[in-house]
């Protein structure tokens, strides 16, 4: 990201203003930021859901701002996996359908999953790798799972179809310390196995050791200095 500035409206103050942020392929980056520091906005910019008023954003070699909205949506479906803080899953879909959902929105991810043995098989493999009994949870509703289980299902969904970049927006904030560490290790392992870069956002600086590199949003987002 270069010289990126973003405000939610022309009259409001910028929420994100950074001169340079570069993350390498397959790198696992920890991005610390306090509440209201623009973490989610930054992820929205990287995901191509939000568009900056100035600057350039390149993801996996693609210039997001050169794409139209439809192309950005398509790019996000194909190349990005997202894990939210909580309530990651669609409540009306069973676990299996939640995990394979990205393959329905993206032919690229569907093809990648097919090459790995099929969407369902790949989903079961990922659930197993993330410490869940795939057979036991496959047909369950997400509301029947614990928060920790839900986050692992969300991680499996983010990873299916081998996207190039995983965005994790405080995914461990609802987990206890043991579950949190286990979850991060599993996520790291799977990102390594998939060759995906990971941007892990959290307000908890103590998690930084789990990652290749740690950044503090306060250091790179000058907009927050103004605020």
């Amino acid at each position: 990201m270069s010289d990126v500035a973003f405000a939610y409206s022309a009259r409001s103050e910028p929420v994100v203003s950074l001169t340079d942020l570069r993350i390498e392929t397959a790198e696992r980056v920890f991005l610390r930021g306090a509440s209201g520091s623009g973490k989610s906005t930054l992820l929205g910019l990287i995901a191509g859901i939000l568009s900056p008023q100035a600057g350039s954003i390149e993801v996996l070699g693609q210039d997001l701002l050169a794409m139209n909205a439809t192309q950005r949506d398509s790019f996000r479906a194909s190349q990005l996996g997202v894990i939210f803080q909580i309530f990651n899953l669609l409540p009306y879909l069973p676990v299996g359908a939640n995990v394979t959902l990205p393959c329905r929105f993206s032919a690229v991810r569907a093809k990648a999953a097919a090459e790995a043995g099929g969407a369902d098989e790949e989903a079961r493999r990922l659930l197993g790798r993330l410490g869940l009994d795939a057979d036991a949870v496959w047909a369950k509703r997400s509301t029947d799972l614990s928060v920790g289980q839900q986050q692992r299902v969300a991680a499996a969904r983010a990873l299916i179809g081998r996207p190039g970049l995983i965005l994790a927006d405080e995914p461990t904030s609802a987990l206890d310390a043991n579950s949190r560490d286990a979850f991060i290790e599993l996520l790291n392992e799977e990102c390594d196995a998939a060759g995906a870069a990971l941007i892990f956002v959290s307000h908890d600086a103590g998690l930084a050791d789990h990652f290749n590199r740690a950044l503090d949003l306060a250091d790179i987002n000058t907009a927050m200095e103004v605020v």
Binding site: I49, V82, F84, R157
Partner: peptide, 8 residues
Amino acid sequence: ILRALGAR
């Protein structure tokens, strides 16, 4: 969630 998954 749907938007993050690529839903337009």
